[in-house]
Write a protein that binds this DNA or RNA. Structure first.
Lengths: 226, 226
DNA sequence: CAGAAAAAGTGCGTGCACGCAATTTTGCGT
DNA sequence: ACGCAAAATTGCGTGCACGCACTTTTTCTG
């Protein structure tokens, strides 16, 4: 199941994809995101520009995918791999937090780059959509035949949306003038008066954004299980 | 608040926008969606192609907006306008269902057109994103200062996601060979064996998709209210 | 092990999105 | 009424996404 069709052909594809990823990121860092044309990336990866577009639907996707990788699939795997006794809401939350806790130093650099351009920021946020399909599958399995498949999709899509909100909040406070971010009130950015200053670490933001969905996940799980 | 800046200038803008909408839809129906270029739409509306792109970021948006109109804002208004005693979940669900119950005959025609092209279908589904901002505002108001603004955003985004799922389900069964759609089991498309046949009227699909989120809305409201 | 079938890569052409800077239109103050 | 500042429109140029048809590579099958 993890190796759908076969071998050699698939590896070449992944190699090409990886080469494009790497080339896109490297060139973007070297020259700045705006000075990189699709033609350049393709050339650096040794393929035609047309082939490039068979792998990525936009120039931003290639750059962003270097930091995104296959995060979506790993989230679903983490949820599916966890112990069965855990609350679904907790399993999902922990899986998301864990997979978004970037350990790589290279990722930091890439994220810094991404925040500098609106198009890249948007592409990065759009990657949350990719969580939905695998998460739908794993949630549907946990709910068994009891829940509708629609329920699983809605919950998965909601989780994806929450993650997006969390990332938006996080990016918003990223590199704020004065550096007041790290020292803001409590995690979650309390509404004080009228305006809001969302702040907090990425894990905090993720947990804060996913928390409101817990009741929905609990209820679905309750209907499914005993 | 409903009339932000002023008058005449704004009306002209809306007139232009409306002219573009109408022209886009008319031409798409007349010639078929693929035989309409941006240049044609702009010409029919009496503006330059460049101006067209100041109003719509893509060709599909213009066509789709003819059937979408300002549905998002009306949903938020319906939620805000309802009685205060009603459960938030019910207020939202009813508002969404009501605003998506298309009464116009012209809308049917437009939807039929939209389903014929993947690009249009996607653009139509993307309009659900527009629900989030106004819905966030109205939910945040109902939750008062008790809930975080993030909570409101997450809930609004989840509702938008649920609506998207509902529309996807609905479109999937749209014009099915054999017409087995209308007579499928109960609304919601029960999982029977392994595969799924989502079916049901649009209102049914919407309610089925929004139902799983009710617990989350209830919980947030409970924290806010008493 | 050949030859067919499937899949990936490629070149080309078209229409499009959008930044930029010049120009026209609109609104407002005096 | 007049002129100025803000806003909208426009033309132009660039790079890009993607359909189509064709070539090359990989895989499958007898």
């Amino acid at each position: 199941m993890t190796t759908p069709p076969s071998g050699l052909r698939e590896r070449k594809k992944q190699a090409t994809r990886e080469a494009l990823r790497a080339a896109a990121l490297r060139l973007a860092v070297e020259r700045g995101p705006d000075r990189v044309r699709v033609e350049d990336i393709a050339e650096a990866a040794g393929v035609s520009p047309r082939t490039y577009n068979n792998y990525f639907a936009s120039r931003e996707q290639a750059i962003v995918s270097a930091v995104t990788a296959d995060r979506e699939a790993r989230i679903a795997a983490a949820v599916a791999g966890g112990p069965a006794g855990v609350r679904l809401a907790d399993a999902v939350t922990d899986a998301v937090v864990e997979q978004y806790t970037s350990t790589g130093e290279r990722e930091r650099e890439a994220l810094l780059l991404i925040t500098t351009r609106t198009a890249l920021r948007d592409a990065f946020l759009d990657t949350t959509d990719g969580i939905e399909p695998p998460l739908t599958a794993v949630i549907a399995e946990r709910l068994g035949g009891a829940g509708t498949r629609t329920t699983a999709r809605v919950l998965a899509a909601s989780v994806a949306a929450a993650v997006r909100v969390a990332l938006e909040n996080w990016l918003r406070g990223w590199r704020r003038p004065g550096g007041g971010v790290e020292t803001a009130e409590a995690a979650g950015g309390l509404d004080a008066g009228g305006l809001v200053v969302p702040a907090g670490s990425l894990p905090d933001q993720l947990r804060a954004a996913l928390a409101p969905l817990a009741p929905a996940l609990d209820a679905a799980e309750r209907r499914a299980g005993p």
